[in-house]
Design a protein around this nucleic acid. Sequence first.
DNA 1: GCCAACGTTGGC
DNA 2: GCCAACGTTGGC
Length: 147
Amino acid sequence: MKSEPDTFGINDLYNKPDRTEHWDGVRNYQARNMMRDDMKLGDQVFFYHSNCDVPGIVGIMEVVKEGYPDFSAFDPDDKHFDPKSDPEHPRWIMVDVKYLRTLSRTITLKELKDKEELADFALVRRGNRLSIMPVGKDQWEFILSLE
DNA sequence: GCCAACGTTGGC
DNA sequence: GCCAACGTTGGC
């Protein structure tokens, strides 16, 4: 899962009560579908810092609540308000994630791009702007072996 | 249903 | 700040 550290970085998650936060504001159907269908309780997730000096994977979190309506879409004052979504027919979904740990160093996008083993990893494929993307088991283990 | 215009993302 | 790569919107 990507987030801009200027907006919400891994330290912000760490400082939340219970080190837990709902991942609201995702307004992309592919990403929504992953939160709705694929992300299960206990699944581990990489925290990726985007749009910053050193983009890369900085930590690990865990899904502690499976997909449920993103209520930020219901609030006209919210930046992510969507008039087409309402509590009866919620259009957008979020999950809750909990901080597990910060990596001993940032595994940078640059080095991820250089690895033959990650040629199929969605993050390093050209033009991919999805804010949430799947990580295969082998990819997960390989990435962690770089730490 | 097509497609041009426009907005957003995010690396650089 | 630039710009490539998309996703969305809306006219037709």
